[in-house]
Design a protein around this nucleic acid. Structure first.
Lengths: 255, 255
DNA sequence: GCGCGTCGTTCGACAATGCCGACCGGTGCT
DNA sequence: AGCACCGGTCGGCATTGTCGAACGACGCGC
């Protein structure tokens, strides 16, 4: 049976659609978006509702994501080897650098945040584990792009959003930056996603030396960067050391 | 088409199995657990792999949950009305009480933690959003049980695990406790899940007054309880006030 | 080192299964 | 009141998923 199962693929598409649209959707909207017959979409939705993957608003009849997905998502974190090996090092890096630490791996042309340590102060911060960040406007994403040519190829065709005035919004500019990342072994970002915020990241390598993720810190520009817009040497060193330590734990002995 | 779609139900069962087993499973094990032909299980797994819901270990060939689920799970949090309305009140309750705050809703005979505010000190705490807690051994769960008879009915038949010496492990003992909860309007737990840890919780009511979740604090027994093993009055008041405030935001005007 | 057991995977055929167009019943807007 | 839209249901057709059996690769042990 070499071939994916149609109904399951459609069910997954519905779930992704609900996650992207970030809200409630009706049967008609879903059917139209996915070019399905209304009855087909309804049957899938009813099944997904039965297993708790979607819920239906009693008043409006519209559908949204269900609670069962939350537990599945966090269960994924438990078995994610990258995350479990990196937790201790991430805590240490946050303490040493005084900044928020994030670990990301590629997912579907974005960066999935699989771990997040808050900046060690009492300020209110929102956890963004599970968030999908853009590849081209974050330090984490640049690292992943630099060591995975298929990701770069996938960039072509997608629209490269310009979040701020500093965002690298052309493919050639991005490629030039990636060459620099490969040469240096780390990436940085300065106000390219959010004005005033910066990031520094380095690759995490797994068995055999292939890059399986990225680890980095992010915070206010004036704390991370020097007057020339380059990462402060001590912070950069801490980030690179932490990434190397995680890589070693994952079995990338030579790097 | 009145009837759930078989393949999607099976796919969901596989995902739940992978989440429960908390680790990697082979095709054979999965097929046996679900009483499927090996080829059938394989087809579903291949499809799930294609959409990123499961991943395959390159070396062993075994399957585990995939990264796409993490994003879906956190997307659920974004649209969860209970959580979004409760966040502000939960923060306030944590500040006032000095304890960790958790909000739970029922899922599949357990308590799903949909929000968690750390105890306001610098100690290392693990986020347990997405965790599934037992109904009968937590204050949150007791509240949910007390106001949902179908949950109690479902308890019969499941094994009622005795986590500690104090866990209410018989159905009659639980039912007696639930009557007390209904009368008082709140629930507490003292070392029934983990020795030395206690909890206090109150119901969150939605539109029309039906209980849609529970909100509570948990922490060391000596901080939450008085010498008689009853919740400290001030803490209890804070919990009940917060639960009422959230209920009001959800439209349960009369309660 | 050879063979046995087990694993993930593929094949092919059957019919069960999910898909679709058309049809209800209710709600809210005009 | 009429209309348009919504979510949900029905029944027939054939597409689609299911299953038993066989394949190749790996690893363990005799």
């Amino acid at each position: 049976m070499p071939g994916p199962i149609q109904s399951i693929e459609r069910a997954a598409a519905i779930l992704r659609l609900l996650a992207r649209g970030s809200g409630k959707l009706g049967v008609g909207e879903i059917a139209e978006s996915l070019e399905l017959a209304k009855a087909t979409a309804h049957g899938i939705l009813r099944t997904l509702q039965g297993v708790g993957f979607v819920e239906q608003d009693r008043d409006t009849g519209k559908y949204q994501l269900g609670a069962a997905l939350l537990h599945l998502g966090t269960s994924y974190l438990d078995v994610n080897e990258l995350r479990s090996r990196a937790i201790n090092w991430a805590d240490a890096l946050a303490a040493r650098s005084g900044e928020a630490v994030r670990i990301g791996s590629p997912l579907d042309g974005r960066v999935l945040v699989v771990h997040h340590v808050f900046r060690p102060d009492d300020s209110l911060q929102t956890l963004d584990v599970g968030a999908l960040l853009p590849l081209h406007a974050t330090a984490l994403g640049k690292v992943l792009l630099a060591y995975d040519t298929t990701l770069v190829a996938a960039l072509r065709g997608t629209d490269i959003a310009a979040y701020t005035r500093r965002t690298l919004s052309s493919l050639t500019a991005i490629k030039r930056a990636l060459a620099g990342v490969r040469e240096a072994g780390w990436a940085s970002e300065l106000g390219e996603m959010t004005p005033g915020e910066a990031g520094i990241a380095a690759p995490i390598r797994g068995h055999g030396g292939i890059v399986v993720g990225a680890l980095g810190i992010s915070g206010a520009v004036e704390r991370l960067m020097d007057s020339h817009g380059s990462p402060k040497a001590t912070l950069l060193g801490h980030v690179r050391d932490a990434a190397r330590a995680v890589s070693r734990d994952l079995g990338a002995s030579r790097w």
